[in-house]
Amino acid sequence: MNHLKPSQIEQLKAALLEEKAELEAHFELNAAHTEDGGPATMQEADGELSSYDNHPADAATTTFERERDMALDEKLGKKLAQVNRALSQMEDGTYGLDAESGEPIPFERLEAIPSTRHTVQNVPDRDPAPERPVEEQVMTLPPKGAGEGRQSHAGRFDDAGAWQAVEDYGNASRTVDPQAEAEAANEMEKLR
């Protein structure tokens, strides 16, 4: 840690302590919503006595929000662990050194990411995101030639124009005046 000036160390420590306070406040706020600090039940989360009369989409929304919150808590928990590790490294004198090579991490990098353990050159490779969704591994391929029929029958009726075709006949909410409909169709043709 000898490559860092005492004023730099104090600046970084203040940043780490501020980040730690924000992260701990997040977890204290979430723990205040439950009696034992654990996750609330579905009934407590949505305030319903029974989910019997709820639409399945309501339950899905609640489930999604709970899973999102759990993922955020997991991510923020890892970040809090990194901040705590950086603070303990400040105490034992190993802060600011690369975890792999032991070379000094530049102050500018520490200023940007105070809890980092690596220089830019030594950041471990992360698993790349899969190129295609995992669902595609179990999906069946479309039939051979799908879409070719639409191209070869261009200009003919396909399902894409179904609403327009139905709309031309009118609907039950208004009376149909064939003369007015014909005039309107002619006007539309002129505009095209």
Rank of each mutant, 00 (worst) to 15 (best):
residue 2 N to C: 11
residue 2 N to W: 14
residue 5 K to A: 10
residue 8 Q to G: 10
residue 9 I to C: 09
residue 9 I to D: 09
residue 10 E to G: 03
residue 11 Q to Y: 03
residue 12 L to I: 10
residue 14 A to S: 13
residue 15 A to Y: 00
residue 18 E to R: 07
residue 20 K to H: 09
residue 21 A to E: 07
residue 25 A to I: 01
residue 27 F to G: 12
residue 28 E to Q: 05
residue 28 E to F: 00
residue 29 L to I: 07
residue 29 L to M: 02
residue 30 N to G: 02
residue 31 A to W: 06
residue 32 A to I: 01
residue 33 H to K: 15
residue 33 H to N: 14
residue 35 E to D: 14
residue 42 M to G: 03
residue 43 Q to W: 02
residue 44 E to P: 12
residue 44 E to K: 11
residue 45 A to M: 14
residue 45 A to R: 14
residue 51 S to V: 09
residue 52 Y to S: 04
residue 56 P to I: 08
residue 57 A to G: 08
residue 57 A to D: 06
residue 58 D to Y: 06
residue 58 D to G: 01
residue 58 D to V: 14
residue 61 T to G: 07
residue 61 T to N: 08
residue 62 T to N: 05
residue 65 E to W: 06
residue 67 E to Y: 04
residue 68 R to I: 00
residue 69 D to P: 00
residue 70 M to W: 06
residue 71 A to Y: 08
residue 73 D to P: 04
residue 74 E to W: 06
residue 74 E to G: 11
residue 75 K to E: 14
residue 80 L to W: 09
residue 80 L to V: 12
residue 80 L to K: 13
residue 81 A to E: 15
residue 81 A to T: 15
residue 89 Q to D: 13
residue 91 E to W: 01
residue 92 D to W: 07
residue 92 D to F: 10
residue 93 G to E: 09
residue 95 Y to G: 10
residue 96 G to I: 05
residue 96 G to T: 03
residue 98 D to L: 00
residue 100 E to Q: 04
residue 101 S to R: 04
residue 101 S to D: 03
residue 104 P to I: 02
residue 106 P to W: 04
residue 106 P to C: 02
residue 108 E to W: 00
residue 108 E to H: 01
residue 111 E to L: 01
residue 112 A to I: 08
residue 114 P to G: 03
residue 115 S to K: 02
residue 115 S to M: 07
residue 115 S to I: 00
residue 117 R to E: 13
residue 117 R to V: 08
residue 117 R to D: 11
residue 117 R to S: 10
residue 120 V to A: 09
residue 120 V to Q: 13
residue 121 Q to T: 03
residue 123 V to K: 05
residue 124 P to L: 00
residue 124 P to H: 03
residue 125 D to Q: 03
residue 126 R to F: 00
residue 127 D to P: 06
residue 127 D to E: 15
residue 128 P to G: 01
residue 128 P to V: 10
residue 129 A to W: 05
residue 130 P to V: 03
residue 133 P to T: 07
residue 133 P to E: 12
residue 135 E to R: 10
residue 137 Q to D: 13
residue 143 P to V: 07
residue 148 E to V: 15
residue 151 Q to H: 10
residue 155 G to P: 01
residue 156 R to S: 06
residue 159 D to H: 14
residue 161 G to Q: 07
residue 165 A to D: 02
residue 166 V to K: 04
residue 166 V to M: 11
residue 167 E to V: 12
residue 168 D to W: 10
residue 171 N to G: 14
residue 174 R to P: 00
residue 176 V to C: 02
residue 176 V to D: 06
residue 185 A to V: 01
residue 186 N to H: 07
residue 188 M to Q: 11
residue 189 E to T: 11
residue 189 E to A: 15
residue 189 E to L: 14
residue 189 E to F: 10
